[in-house]
Design a protein around this nucleic acid. Structure first.
Lengths: 222, 222
DNA sequence: TAGATTGTTAATCGATTAACAATC
DNA sequence: TAGATTGTTAATCGATTAACAATC
């Protein structure tokens, strides 16, 4: 996958949803405009960085005033296309898969799982959150027919690559992978890996280093 | 939180668990030694980067041969302390909270949720995966008594800060936050945010840019 | 107007990548 | 030995941070 296609820094892409979530609470609090100084204070980020991030959405702020909250929210929605629902398929209806199916929050991000797949005959045929679980082998045909672009993998590690291949066969071009596996995809397919073990490892190592540094006291500095 | 404490690059910390997961499959396949060239080929990473990452764990490789797989696995376990179980508290027993409770995989990363908390009287008193759900107000006392260091937040956004404050009061010093909220913590407390919306946003934006760039064809280059 | 804030350009910092000597 | 691979130092690249003019 050549990188030139993606001219927006990935750190920026990850921060933008944070601003969005934050601005929702700002709007709910009745504020009409907000400055980067204020956002940065609440989110622990530097104001110039916020300004640069927001500039990618195309919004213009007003000197002395800041940004119009509702306009900024709309800009972010337009930027990510959250107004238009993207339909997705989920493979692997285990604990994590069910949690993903049940999470209503995705609706706000233009994301909707419309069908789920599994190989377990005990699960196939059941319905979770109005989503029917179908046998895995039906995925390629169905996704091609429904023009599905996004697939979510919540399977065990050892079948993740196989599932990804089936998705790509069915015309899926974006894969959200929750399996702890390094999936190989051809050019023209985007993969986003979510690895809980990575986050956990970062947390526990930082905690360990903190303890070792002697900064760990019963009473923390507030 | 001063950064000097953490002298290992965060990207490295996030990649190390990936190597670990991969090396497990290598070991299962019966391979005794492996080179960075080989790892890099399977994981889509540059060999020198892998070498630098692994060097942080203190392992020494052998020129011409590579790294001893079982030694490397043990090095990674020691580095992260995955042999010693870290007990944790979970707050918020909704869909995501339940999925986290039920995920057995954490055991391999020295992580175990030993108690869960909620404010919903319908859930308090129930047991999921041998973990009892207790009323939230008992958290500070209990975590202090049990010397719990890690807390997991899987609550709605609007109570996340409050829950974090209770955890810190109870002596918890590492917070794994799944709520879409910017939590403020005092010096001496580590926070690790997991934001599913961020990953989803990155995926959908990349897909959108890919389509716009005209590289999106029915047939992908394999 | 004065001052706060935006937007942009320059400087810094850190991670990745390249180069290459050391080693088995 | 020859050659593949490690380990390390140097160069590059990109993101963050600092500086400052423009603006309302």
């Amino acid at each position: 996958m050549d990188k030139q296609v993606f001219n927006i820094p990935e750190p920026t892409l990850k921060r933008l949803p944070l601003y969005y979530q934050y601005l929702k609470t700002v709007l709910a609090a009745g504020r009409e405009a907000i400055s980067c100084t204020h956002i940065g204070n609440d989110l622990n980020l530097d104001p110039p960085q916020i300004r640069k991030d927001l500039a990618f959405t195309g919004i213009r702020g007003m000197p002395k005033v800041g940004y119009q909250v509702d306009t900024l929210l709309r800009c972010l929605e337009d930027f990510f296309g959250w107004n238009r629902i993207d339909e997705a398929f989920l493979v692997g209806v285990g604990n994590l898969g069910k949690a993903l199916l049940q999470y209503e929050g995705f609706a706000h991000y233009g994301f909707k799982i419309v069908a789920a797949f599994d190989v377990d005959s005990q699960i196939v045929g059941k319905t979770f959150c109005n989503v029917r679980v179908l046998p895995l082998e039906k995925l390629p045909n169905l996704s091609a027919r429904m023009k599905i672009r996004i697939g979510v993998i919540a399977t065990p590690q050892n079948v993740a690559q196989q599932v990804a291949d089936m998705m790509i066969d069915g015309g899926i071009r974006g894969i959200w992978n929750f399996a702890p596996a390094a999936i190989k995809v051809p050019d023209g397919v985007v993969i986003q890996n979510e690895n809980l073990a990575a986050g956990l490892a970062v947390l526990s190592k930082k905690l360990q280093l903190l303890v070792q540094s002697g900064k760990f006291r019963q009473e923390v500095v507030k």
